[in-house]
Design a protein around this nucleic acid. Structure first.
Lengths: 199, 199
DNA sequence: GTTATTGCAATACAACTGACCTGTAAAAAT
DNA sequence: ATTTTTACAGGTCAGTTGTATTGCAATAAC
């Protein structure tokens, strides 16, 4: 055999090529041939690493979810030595919203997957799994802020966490549609946080 | 010529067949042949009424938007003789959320269009146009409630209207994904309204 | 050096796509 | 009665899709 190859590394490269296409033409517009061309490899080689198109889609979704989680963590750690709950929430939201071109294309990929997941049971599991984790993270921060007197004690942390996630999702949708600008989206998120953080 | 036919009525029938397919298999899964079969007509007949697939998609989107707006109006008028702002907002939200099977499939069609619209300039215009109308309607009700002392006077009506729309959008997405149930979605929306309506 | 295995290229294939074209029956217009 | 227009049925076409198959070069194991 020729050089022994890192399979996962190749798969990640292919997944990234897939995102580039999915963010401009949608997931359905990303045929095996297109992805192979975008990745600079042959169709045969792509098929060597993914037995089917479905396998490729699932791998790429898992990969993008992992990268997103990593970026949120990195951003929080970079923001302050001991970040306050409000900073953590705000930075997380900022990272999730499509505020720059890169994040925008990432969100487009997520949306493409979302639509697919609604109709595809296999993808749905992968698409859903991140939500409870994120809700728990948000709810924890809200609890911390409540203990600190920054949020009224009659709020329910889980409810507030879910509302915030849903709001970000909606803000993302309308930002992608150019109904409002990235800056307006962030301002709206801040307005929501302002009212969450009232003792 | 044979019986003179109501073209728009035929087109509406075809559009409804398209929704039935789009809500289960997605927009891309709705080929001209599939739509024709679902509508119980031949491919030739379908092509007689729509010169291209794109035309069909645009018509069906406009039609579904119009029906949705009509249903919201009907629901509000049915709720009370002189509906309060809060009732109007709540009923509108309830109509937008995928609370029953019919509404769910309608929302699935909307989502399918949304993803398409992000990449298709022609569709984007049609998909966006409903938002400012809805925001104006919501903002009006919020202003009425503020004048009545039901909402704190320091709130910005347009901001609150936009936040509510975005929240509903996010609630819809996660309800479609079965992250939470329709009942939970409505409870979350009520929680948000509770905090909006505090003097 | 032989053999077995891996990495990949190339081709083939059946299914399906949207668009286009032609044919024809029916009825309205003249 | 003739002409014209409408409403459709059916077929064709070039192009694209995911998948399967075959062939072959490179190298590790023996």
């Amino acid at each position: 055999m020729p050089k022994r190859v890192d399979h996962d590394e190749r798969r990640r490269r292919i997944a990234e090529a897939l995102w580039r296409i999915a963010s401009t033409r949608g997931l359905e517009g990303a045929s095996l041939r297109d992805v192979a061309a975008e990745a600079g490899i042959s169709l045969g080689q792509l098929q060597h690493y993914f037995r089917s198109r479905g396998d490729m889609l699932v791998f790429a979704l898992d990969h993008i979810n992992e990268l997103a989680a990593r970026r949120i963590r990195a951003r929080i750690e970079a923001s302050a030595a001991v970040p306050s709950p409000r900073v953590i929430l705000r930075e997380s939201v900022a990272e999730m919203l499509p505020l720059d071109a890169e994040s925008r294309s990432g969100n487009l990929v997520q949306v493409a997957y979302f639509l697919h997941a609604v109709h595809d049971e296999r993808l749905r599991g992968h698409a859903k799994e991140g939500v409870p984790v994120l809700r728990a993270l948000f709810a924890d921060q809200i609890r911390r802020a409540m203990a600190d007197g920054q949020i009224a004690p009659d709020r329910d942390p889980d409810t507030e966490a879910t509302l915030l996630i849903c709001l970000v999702d909606g803000l993302t949708s309308y930002t992608l549609l150019d109904v409002h600008s990235p800056a307006e989206a962030m301002a709206l998120a801040d307005a929501h946080l302002d009212r969450l953080f009232t003792p």
